[in-house]
Design a protein around this nucleic acid. Structure first.
Length: 474
RNA sequence: GGCCCCUUCGUCUAGUGGUCUAGGACACUAGCUUUUCAAGCUAGCAGCACGGGUUCGAUUCCCGUAGGGGCUACCA
């Protein structure tokens, strides 16, 4: 059985990189008919928050990445909050202690920090010097009863090398003597990442660990831990990181990094899903994938090795594409509240027509607000340059006058009929259609850019059209 | 500093020891359409980091250099 997991730490919102990791795990599970597990790594008591925890759920839910086991739904391998597994972690640390594969360390953070600084001053690798490695039991007892804080360190077998076999990058080997006795249980009693991760992945029977390649260098430590326990390590797949425009790791400096922020900006979840799926993964020439296609076509083989730069332009393009593709009802539901907020209540049918008329021009959902302004209010500015060009002409007055007169009589007031009026007038005056349409568009919208004229006129309705034709600042 | 990983158009990517005159997409430019802006369609621009090998032949294999990223925490 394929079992994969997404194991975020609740220290902030679900960001792009995390979402992509979650997506790849989810896709792999769904593609393989396996299980996708969500585990919250909240062992950092300082930084973990409940809000962040909820934010992660929200992000995952927005993208439609549902988990088979984890918080809220449980499962047979719980608990799924790492802090609730404290006893499990301590028990396993004790096992290592009993087998002399780990030991207590009483060095203080300050002391360690000092040594690290000195080491780097001497241009040496800053690694733990093993001071507490061979502390006699009596001394341990003494220090303990003196209430000195202690951690548990892994007695790392510093010989040979550890090879990480990876489904994405083949393999990477590490010299063990370059590693040091890292901490597995912190002085607050909670496990460190490398330790908790190994214990939990094993106990949860995770078959594949798919995670960002920033964890690649941690993997030998984890493999050594698996070996110390006599456990079989899972298969690893390290996926490339996502970078910002400056090729540095994606961070707040690059603008929005949480997926929810993108939701708030007016991106559609399917666009985001499609976009991040293509970051570090490709399938032939294809760019647009439905959720189903993603599941069907995803493979770890298709994952790239080099990091990917997050490119808003392409995301925007996809968003526009999806906006043009989703069901009209859904688009309207998305736009309606924004329009009502900006322009007050209006007839649903009217809003519907406006939204659909504007559909092709939207990149982000909120784009509809400024674009729709002239549909909802008479209080819009006229483009000065356009006035010069299309109102200060000899025919402008006559054109608007004639249109007003004829539209006032028109029955029924629908675009096919409206079109005839324009065509006839153009013919009568022996001018191109544009000569008539430009001043009309300016009079009705204040600009030279709008959906097709006849649609605009029909949607606006006779009354508003006549009024605007009359009050146009010629 | 040490170690590890990565390197195809500006960006995301496809690709194979010869079929590569390196394919697609975004962005950009031009054209078409035309009542504008979009959308759509067509075309164009643009890349195998560099240096050595291996080979009859390397973008593709190996080594080095450079550049980028990561790890080196009682963060994950």
């Amino acid at each position: 059985m394929i079992r994969v997991r997404f194991a975020p730490s609740p220290t902030g919102a679900l960001h792009i990189g995390g979402a992509r990791t979650a997506l790849f795990n989810w896709l792999y599970a769904r593609n393989q008919g396996g299980q996708f597990i969500l585990r919250i790594e909240d062992t950092d008591q300082e930084r973990s928050t409940l809000e962040a925890n909820h934010a992660i759920f929200r992000g995952l839910e927005w993208l439609g990445l549902d988990w088979d086991e984890g918080p809220n739904i449980g499962g047979n391998y719980g608990p799924y909050y790492q802090t609730q597994r404290l006893e499990i972690h301590q028990k396993h640390a004790r096992q290592l202690l009993d087998e002399d594969k780990a030991y207590y360390c009483f060095c203080t953070p300050e002391e360690l920090d000092e040594k690290r600084k000195e080491a780097s001053k001497r241009k040496e690798a800053p690694r733990y010097d093993g001071k507490c490695r061979k502390l006699p039991d009596a001394e341990i007892k003494m220090l303990e009863s003196a209430g000195r804080p202690k951690v548990i360190r892994f007695r790392l077998p510093a010989v040979g090398e550890t090879v990480v076999h990876d489904l994405v990058r083949d393999k990477a080997s590490f010299q063990n003597d370059l590693l040091d006795d890292f901490v597995i249980i912190k002085s607050d009693g909670f496990p460190t990442y490398n330790f908790a991760c190994v214990v939990d992945d094993h106990l949860m029977e995770i078959s594949h660990v798919i995670r960002g390649d920033d964890h690649l260098s941690n993997t030998p430590r984890q493999i050594l831990l698996y070996q110390a326990f006599g456990w079989k390590p899972p298969k690893f797949a390290h996926i490339p990181m996502i970078l910002g425009k400056d090729k540095a790791r994606l961070s707040k400096r690059h603008g929005a990094t949480s997926v929810i922020a993108y939701s708030d900006m007016g991106y559609l979840p399917e666009a985001m899903l499609n976009y991040i799926a293509r970051l570090g993964w490709g399938f032939k020439d294809q760019e647009v994938f439905s959720r189903g296609e993603l599941i069907q076509k995803f493979s770890l083989k298709g994952v790239t090795r080099s990091p990917a730069v997050f490119d808003t332009d392409k995301l925007n393009w996809l968003n526009g594409k999806y906006i043009r593709q989703i069901l009209p009802e859904r688009l309207i539901d998305l736009c309606e509240p924004l329009l009502i907020e900006a322009y007050g209540n209006h007839d649903v049918e009217y809003i519907k027509k406006v939204v659909l008329a504007l559909r092709d021009r939207l990149v982000l959902i909120p784009d509809v607000v400024p674009l729709a302004k002239f549909f909802f209010t008479d209080d819009f500015e006229y483009d000065q340059n356009a006035i010069e060009k299309h109102f200060k002409t000899e025919h402008a007055g006559k054109i608007l006058e004639t249109l007003k007169a004829r539209l006032a009589q028109l029955e029924p007031f629908i675009k096919d009929k409206i079109e005839l009026i324009f065509k006839e007038l153009a013919k009568e005056m022996d001018v191109k259609l544009g000569v008539i349409i430009h001043p009309c568009r300016l009079a009705l919208t204040g600009t030279l850019e709008s959906p097709p004229m006849y649609d605009v006129i029909e949607i606006l309705g006779r009354e508003k059209v006549i009024n605007r034709l009359v009050k146009a600042p010629l």
